Amino acid sequence: MQNSSDSSGMGFILLGLFDHTLTHQVLFSLVFMTFIASLVGNALMILLIHTDSRLCTPMYFLLSQLSLMDLMLVSTIIPKMAANYLMNSRSISPAGCGSQIFLLLTLGGGECFLLAAMAYDRYVAICHPLHYHVLMSQKLCSHLAAGSWLMGGVDGLMQASATLSFPYCHSREIDHFFCEAPSLVRLACADTTVFEFFMYVCCTLMLLIPLSLIVVSYSLILAAVLRMHSATARKKAFATCSSHLAVVGLFYGALMVIYMRPKSYRSVGHGKVVSAFYTILTPVLNPLIYSVRNKEVKGAFRNWLSKKHAM
């Protein structure tokens, strides 16, 4: 009978994303600069939304929650990865590993439901503009945001607790640059078939339920836009929705590749690349997508700069 080690007594080894060749050092520098840009972009988006009165609307409140989730997401992954790389260390404690799993699932699941709430907001704005302030009240908006955090948190707590409850008696080397539940479960020396099935179903539901709501919302929006007689109104409606659809496509595309593929089709190397995309690139792209073509955000940014120069 094999001796199993309690997962609370020993740490894990993260094999990481980079080695110390010149090419990988350049790539690491690019990733770290992307991390800084993500912090600045999302923090600035939150600042503008909460300081400019023109952005005090349900749409921008939900967008501030998205920026907060993205800010926390990169802060969960990159600092530990950078510290390990710079100090030539690959260790992570069980508590640190569990925290990463919990936060990743909380933020990932929360963002799924938050994107669905944002799609509903666009549906109400375009299909029921006269009743917008009634149907999207501040109270409902707060409940939608709180519900998104709660649903993600429950999923994160269940999966993190279950993942760390398994005995890990063989290699503790996680072939990833952060602790991810599927990567960690592969190292368990117990039968994880039931848990992996539960995890697959849970992740699928967390993805498909919000995605279904998004598809329904945008189907109704499309039908309403096609009935509009004014070309200007149609153009404005499509411009309003295009940013959100771009974010949905980036986020859901990456998560579905990681969590909804059958186990036999999963590749460690491919999984790392896709994980890097949604944990590093997506958080820096989101504020850019919502600001480049958004006149209100650009106006708020110019006002903020002018106030800074006037001080």
Rank of each mutant, 00 (worst) to 15 (best):
Y200L: 15
Q25V: 11
L55A: 02
N42I: 05
P287E: 03
E111D: 00
N42R: 06
I258R: 07
L144V: 11
L73A: 11
V74W: 03
G299C: 08
L68G: 04
V134I: 06
Y252C: 01
A237C: 08
W149I: 06
A300P: 12
M136A: 06
L208G: 02
S64P: 00
H143K: 07
I101Q: 12
G11P: 13
D6M: 09
R261Q: 07
Y85G: 06
S93R: 10
G271S: 13
G11L: 11
E196A: 08
H131E: 13
F166V: 04
L27R: 07
L15F: 02
P129K: 08
H24S: 13
C141T: 11
V40F: 04
S137D: 08
V134W: 00
S219M: 06
L48P: 01
R90H: 13
L44K: 10
S306L: 12
P210I: 06
M311P: 01
L305Y: 10
V247A: 07
M311W: 05
H50A: 01
L30S: 14
G299A: 07
L62Q: 02
L164I: 07
P262R: 10
V40N: 00
C169H: 03
S161Y: 04
L164S: 12
D175Q: 14
L205S: 04
A37I: 03
P182H: 13
I221G: 02
V292L: 15
V40D: 00
L17G: 02
L285C: 02
T232F: 06
E173S: 03
V297T: 09
S5C: 14
L164R: 12
A310D: 11
L15G: 01
M136P: 04
F198D: 04
S89R: 15
P167S: 08
S217R: 01
T192Y: 03
V74A: 02
L220C: 07
I36E: 00
C203V: 11
K263V: 11
H133P: 03
N84E: 10
K298E: 06
S183H: 12
K298T: 13
R227I: 13
L47K: 14
W149V: 09
M87A: 14
A223G: 01
F251L: 08
V257L: 05
I13M: 14
C203P: 01
I77R: 11
S242I: 10
L208D: 03
L207K: 05
S7L: 03
L22G: 13
G152S: 02
R293D: 05
I280C: 01
C189T: 05
T192W: 03
L104F: 04
V297R: 05
M136E: 11
S89A: 14
L157C: 08
C97T: 05
L250K: 03
S230D: 02
R186H: 14
Y259N: 09
T163H: 10
L130Y: 01
L14P: 04
L208Y: 06
F277V: 05
